[in-house]
Design a protein around this nucleic acid. Structure first.
Lengths: 210, 210, 210, 210
DNA sequence: CATGAATGAGAATTCATTCAT
DNA sequence: AATGAATGAATTCTCATTCAT
């Protein structure tokens, strides 16, 4: 099947609306009827283009993971010192999360749910990313400072830190209404970067205290 | 309403099964029929005891938040030094998350979704917790080391760090199957505590770099 | 699950209407909405009682096969001469077909369709009936007159003969409108019995001509 | 409308696939999407060539009936003795059924269903065939042996007998897997011919017993 | 407390058909 | 002739909830 321009427009309208709705209400709680209305698209077109509701979800996850994975490739791979690379990476990742906030929320809230159709799919991405974390963070860290951390611990930990702001956003905003976005984002990035890097390097000297 | 022993058993069976199912499949994706079957309880009893499906969710969230809030009261309040208190608190909180892993997953995955009935409810708890974070962490930190951090940033950040292991569990386990639980939990606690505390204290010296 | 009288009434109303509709329009062409309306029953009750549309079909087939199988047990088993038993059986079977004409039509039109869920189910009944045909018709026939016929040929052949009137009914009636039922049924029974028995005994003498 | 070679290929591919699918799953249960995929043809071509799904069915029935009707003309008309003609006809009809097994199954399973669009169409063919049966079988039978049978009874009866093997094929094959086709078909033909003719002639002497 | 029955709305999906290109 | 897109109705099935017993 090849798609015409008109088809692509329709497809995009579906995806965009789906990302917004899935993030706001959750995947399972979003009805295709509502989605079709909001996207101003015939209900049947969703199955026509994506096969199923789950197919649409996969498409969205795919796009998000592809972008994130590409960030890892760009900023974590390479000959620079791990600390420098991490600093760059965190900056860009937080920015990416900010720009794709809804995608991030979908990932975070759908990830933990056990769905046989999607589990293997998620694992595929996880393995890919863990390799980079191991090679570019864990191994150098061990060699230079003797600190031993597992990629499956430090990876999720870093992601959690970078996304805490977005995961708790609806709550934060009920306490502290949004505004002054730009400046806040910078501060947030600095805080996460600072704690993570200083924390890691602090581990060096107190490894046996922990 | 007073319940007989038999009634309490039924009620508990519902709650326990609900926690497991909501965590595994998500709140919206779990049907009350399925829940009733699994709990070996008549379908109508769920509404009888909890009024509605959402009432059941609230009950679960309530239990979890009450326990967590109580931990904050116990270990963050008091005259000790913030660092000491945080060390204790993190240890107990991670342990609490481990024991109530399914409750935690429900909280984390339902949190970001905008549900008018539940939003205000969540905010109530958030406000309560933020006060403690401000008074026991942020203010002392500012006074002793001049570091200025907002409770609505540092609070979620700490929770995120402590729960990263559980939020990404299904993925971690596809890469790294579970096992040797005890030891792993200790290490994990140490790592989170280390990074968080070392990171915070590290901020002291580089506050203007960020 | 135990059913109350009210539930049984509803269930029967569904089954009766389903038999009529499935026979008239075919199983696949009959919608559950139409069925529910006609039976004056809430749409959801069909799935409540039968699990699925196919479950309803199975229930109907089951009833029909059970009745037919019981006829075979009653009239084909026993010490009488095969010819006498066949005469009795055909009379009662044709009568049974007449009384359960719609059930018969459903069986005949759904039988040939390959449905993995139902195939094994049909085979179960087929095996059961073939045994009786072999033991009560084929074997005696061979012993007394030397004619060798396979039960999987003679069984379907007899059923086909007995049901030809009903299978082609809609066509017959466009040519020859119905009426004078009683008398016609008697004649029909006699014809089928006559041809089948005379035909079989005729084979005796011309076995090698065919 | 004139069709190019390419168009004819497409059309044939649709018809062939439709015959196979309608026979296997039933007309109503077969979707045009599935049909188009299987035939490797664009979905819209089906309506382009046949106007509608029902148009496609009519086309198939038409082909089958034309062939069958032609057999009747060839072998039942003419000056030979009825018995001789019937013998020839049955042989060729069973062979025709064997070669067009799927077409036969479609006819037999769609026949009993009341569809206003198709009913009159089927009746047209039925009338045509009944005339031949009356003139070539019933009337001579009455004149030579005094046996009175109606064409609307004896016609369907004969067809039923000849097609029993195919109508119950899916069941027969679960009990008795297919194999040794050639020989089996011959035996089957002999059996049906034998029973039908011997049965009819047997009626001569016992006419008043029935 | 507990049960089976019932309800109406809504779920996702598929349907046959049409049409502009 | 053929294609991809679109449509609106209909499909089966499940939903949370209610209620009489």
């Amino acid at each position: 099947m090849e798609f015409t321009q008109k088809g692509i427009d329709t497809k995009n309208r579906i995806v965009d609306t789906a990302i917004a709705l899935f993030a706001k209400k959750g995947f399972a709680a979003t009805g295709l009827r509502e989605l079709a209305n909001e996207a101003e698209v015939n209900l049947a077109m969703i199955n026509y283009f994506f096969g199923s509701k789950k197919g649409l979800l996969k498409d969205i996850l795919d796009t998000f993971f592809t972008g994130y994975s590409s960030l890892m490739q760009q900023h974590l791979r390479g000959p620079s010192k791990p600390e420098v690379k991490l600093r760059h990476f965190i900056r860009h990742a937080v920015e990416y999360f900010d720009e794709n906030r809804d995608g991030l929320i979908i990932v975070l809230t759908e990830l933990p749910h056990e769905d046989p159709e999607i589990t293997e799919y998620k694992a595929k991405w996880a393995r890919k990313m863990m390799i980079i974390v191991r090679e570019e963070i864990c191994t150098p860290l061990k060699e230079t400072s003797g600190v031993v951390v597992s990629p499956v611990v430090i990876g999720p930990l870093l992601v959690s830190m970078m996304s805490s702001r977005f995961l708790f956003a609806p709550i934060i905003e009920t306490v502290n209404p949004p505004g002054l976005k730009e400046e806040f984002l910078d501060k947030y990035t600095d805080l996460v970067t600072g704690i993570f890097l200083e924390g890691l390097s602090g581990l060096t000297h107190n490894q046996d205290e922990g």
